[in-house]
């Protein structure tokens, strides 16, 4: 079943076209990643989908409901963690969870149970009595995300929820989200500018840049499509400025950069290329101190896709 359907969606702020005729379809029961650099339009899309702002044009359907005609009906069934921090400064951590559940009309008993569970899962037990205004940014962010799980929902929007979290809290949150999706069958729409996160968490990833969706695929497919290639790194013992010249005639060998000591090469035919490189280095008596051939990682694909799309815009 389709959970989010978007057609030719556009939104501009005075002179800036923040979202540019986007089409998007998100299936239920998965974590859908929305990946893009700062200013790409991720938050604007979230605000449109959560009915906080109105589009200039286009159609939005969320959980089968028209977002422009019946926004409240959608908001009753979704959860939202916006990029901007939000908290009740004078309430304690546990009280703010409890009150948030009350605002969502969760019955008292369930509220108590969930508060305890979430304090535990988000490692907030130690600071449960602390007021929100006295928390660190990372602690506050954890409360903000935990709070959203006080109520039931079919679809959760998370806008860069891990910003401000340390690596261990980050990993814990990602695992918590994965398990929620598995246990409840809910859908998560997750924005991030960190590719490793999207790769770890998401079933599908849309890459957005300059308000346009460039590509949508699973992490593996993205790797296959862009990443049949490998990155070869050669580290020679002494600086040898002529190195790129020696290697440039090998077929299928794209030299990315070289400083005469380390040379980075992309190739979709890495084994043959590697053999040729070794032969040439051997013939020229150039000793190698290190050599590696790795699948190009998603980070590099991401950077490449984004910079290609920037280039085609100009």
């Amino acid at each position: 079943m389709s959970c989010i359907e978007v057609h030719s969606l556009s939104k501009s702020y005075s002179s800036i076209l923040a979202v540019d005729t986007i089409d998007l379809s998100v299936e239920s029961g998965q974590v859908f990643g929305f990946l893009g650099p700062n200013g790409a339009g991720k938050s604007t899309v979230i605000k449109l989908l959560t009915t906080l702002i109105q589009p200039d044009s286009g159609q939005i359907s969320v959980l089968g409901v028209n977002a422009i005609k019946e926004p409240l009906k959608i908001r009753k069934k979704i959860g939202v963690v916006l990029q901007q921090p939000s908290y009740e400064p004078t309430l304690s951590v546990e009280k703010s969870l409890e009150k948030y559940g009350m605002m969502w009309n969760v019955d008292k008993k369930t509220r108590q149970i969930r508060t305890e569970e979430l304090l535990e899962s988000f490692e907030l037990t130690q600071i449960r009595k602390k007021k929100n205004e006295d928390l660190s940014i990372g602690q506050r962010r954890r409360v903000q995300v935990a709070r959203e799980f006080m109520h039931d929902m079919d679809l959760l929007f998370l806008d860069e929820p891990t910003v401000g979290l340390d690596p261990s809290a980050r990993r814990k949150l990602l695992d918590f989200l994965k398990n929620k999706v598995k246990d409840t069958g809910m859908t998560i729409f997750y924005t991030t500018h960190v590719l490793t996160e999207a790769e770890y968490l998401c079933d599908n990833i849309a890459i957005i840049n300059n308000g346009k969706i460039i590509t949508v695929d699973s992490p593996n497919e993205l790797k296959n499509r862009f990443g049949n290639e490998k990155t070869i790194k050669i580290h020679v013992s002494e600086q040898f400025i002529q190195l790129p010249n020696l290697l440039k005639d090998i077929p299928d060998c794209n030299i990315e950069k070289s400083d005469g000591i380390i040379i980075t090469i992309h190739s979709t035919n890495s084994e043959i290329v590697l053999m040729n490189i070794l032969k040439i280095l051997n013939q020229n008596n150039i000793p190698i101190s290190d050599l590696s051939a790795m699948p190009t990682n998603l980070e590099e694909i991401f950077l490449k896709v984004v910079s290609d799309s920037d280039a085609s815009n100009n």
Binding site: T50, T51, L52, L72, R75, K76, I78, V80, L82, Q84, P85, S86, Y87, E88, P89, M103, W104, N105
Partner: peptide, 17 residues
């Protein structure tokens, strides 16, 4: 305070008008 601490947006994205 709701505007300053993000609660206005949060409430408006919830089951309220």
């Amino acid at each position: 305070n709701d505007r300053r601490h993000g609660m206005f947006e949060q409430i408006m994205s919830g089951p309220f008008t």
